[in-house]
Design a protein around this nucleic acid. Structure first.
Ligand SMILES: NC(=O)c1ccc[n+]([C@@H]2O[C@H](COP(=O)([O-])OP(=O)(O)OC[C@H]3O[C@@H](n4cnc5c(N)ncnc54)[C@H](O)[C@@H]3O)[C@@H](O)[C@H]2O)c1
Ligand SMILES: NC(=O)c1ccc[n+]([C@@H]2O[C@H](COP(=O)([O-])OP(=O)(O)OC[C@H]3O[C@@H](n4cnc5c(N)ncnc54)[C@H](O)[C@@H]3O)[C@@H](O)[C@H]2O)c1
Lengths: 211, 211
DNA sequence: CTAATATTGTTCAACCATTCACATTTAGAC
DNA sequence: GTCTAAATGTGAATGGTTGAACAATATTAG
């Protein structure tokens, strides 16, 4: 995975915090909160106010001294920076228990993503309807992804199949993969991969669970 | 969330990498690989060999110069450090699509965790059987968690309910929470929380997806 | 209009994490 | 046995991130 966008010298760790800010701002919008401050935001997130100001300063000046930030304005600015002020069509590969939960999840659309196709290698599952999508066969994946211009995919297949799936996704033009299989993927430099493995998080906590 | 176990000065970021090492070592075991080296392991994980050696050096000397690490020995040592050389009983709160996928997931047991109880507030779901577990009502949660000595829980309820659920989990004695709801939880200092939100990961990648 | 308060954006110092480099040890070849 | 190649564990050097502090500016109250 690449660490920095070409040309922009903004640390990846900063980019990684923007979605967290965005989520908090969205919540504030729901609460009809009009203004916030770096202190207020930081409090909610367990992040220092200095860090929030510093992070934002990489991209411009979004606040007003004495007043703080207009929630809705800052929200839109960060959406723009992260390019989630649009809808990214997304493919889900592997329609097991997890893939099904993902396919049904209503939380993607309001945040910039829409699942537009589902793929599974199991012939018994091909043809199943989930929501308003039909599960397609692994064979048509490349064609279909190219046809729809999908650049973002989620992988929810068993670990053994994940690398092969990733290879084919990359070949089809996918540039960002969210991998649920508990295995590291080898991909070209310009393809981004993020990982979700709940066990990793759990094991990180048990270390501290001394009696 | 606390950043360090009391008394141990080991950086949390180091603890956070141990589960990743563990996962890779487990994979090597499956491949009947007897020895590995910091270089080999690092290669697979995209981490420098120096970092791996330094991380491990916090806990002892597990390798042999010239030879590297015995996979199975290192595996056991890290399992012990993380306290996953036992089975942590775990509760899942919220048996929607995601909670169901978690409850059915066979990947927890081999890595130190076992789902022992399921809770949901929806009366229509209480009584449902999932695998060999029955969904219990939210009302009996505290009692049941105390009875089973559960210290680890996963939260898969809507964001609006998550804080209330967390409060009750803490009250029941839970000390580690893995939260899938897209919201930050306020918990006492000595309770650990980890978060999983796929959208955060996706948004982090779209930043780099310039045409 | 002035003073008091709040808050930003930014500089700089302190801190933390990563990498380098090497002495040391081991295994294996000859 | 001796030599070579491989690899560890660690102290020192480097690089990156965070937090404290502050000048500048806006708002509010009197
Ligand atoms: N269920 C969970 O809560 C959970 C949690 C963490 C991680 N995971 C991981 O997510 C992945 C999926 O988990 P799951 O519980 O849904 O498993 P599952 O076995 O229910 O589903 C896997 C699906 O992938 C399909 N598949 C297999 N090979 C394929 C291929 N080459 N191309 C396309 N589809 C293929 C299978 O037909 C199946 O439908 C696994 O790697 C698992 O380790 C699951
Ligand atoms: N499905 C996904 O792929 C996915 C992905 C990311 C995050 N999430 C998050 O995970 C959570 C669950 O997602 P889901 O898709 O399973 O939602 P869901 O609506 O299918 O399930 C939520 C369940 O929680 C139960 N519930 C509500 N309030 C409760 C309470 N106070 N105590 C106990 N149970 C309660 C509901 O009865 C329901 O069964 C949500 O916060 C969602 O945002 C889901």
């Amino acid at each position: 995975m690449v660490n920095e966008g070409p040309g922009s010298g903004i640390p990846d760790i900063v980019i990684g915090r923007l979605p967290i800010y965005l989520r908090a701002l969205n919540r504030m919008l729901q609460e009809d909160k009009e203004y916030t401050s770096s202190h207020d935001l930081g409090q909610r997130l367990g992040i220092s106010s200095a860090q929030i100001r510093k992070d934002l300063s990489h991209f411009g000046e979004f606040g007003k001294q004495g007043t703080g930030y207009n929630v809705s304005y800052l929200y839109e600015q960060i959406r723009h920076i992260l390019q989630v002020d649009r809808q990214w069509p997304m493919a889900v590969v592997g329609v097991g228990d997890l893939g099904r939960a993902i396919a049904n999840y209503r939380g993607f659309v309001p945040r910039g993503f829409r699942v537009v196709s589902l793929f599974d290698a199991d012939p018994a599952k091909v043809g199943d309807r989930i929501g308003d999508l039909t599960v397609l066969s692994f064979e048509v994946m490349t064609t279909e992804i190219k046809r729809q211009g999908v650049q973002v995919a989620m992988v929810a297949v068993p670990a053994e199949a994940a690398q092969q799936v990733a290879d084919q996704l990359v070949e089809a033009g996918v540039r960002a993969i969210l991998n649920y299989a508990p295995i590291m993927l080898a991909v070209p430099e310009d393809v981004h991969v993020q990982y979700i493995d709940p066990v990793i998080h759990l094991q990180r906590m048990t270390y501290y669970l001394k009696p």
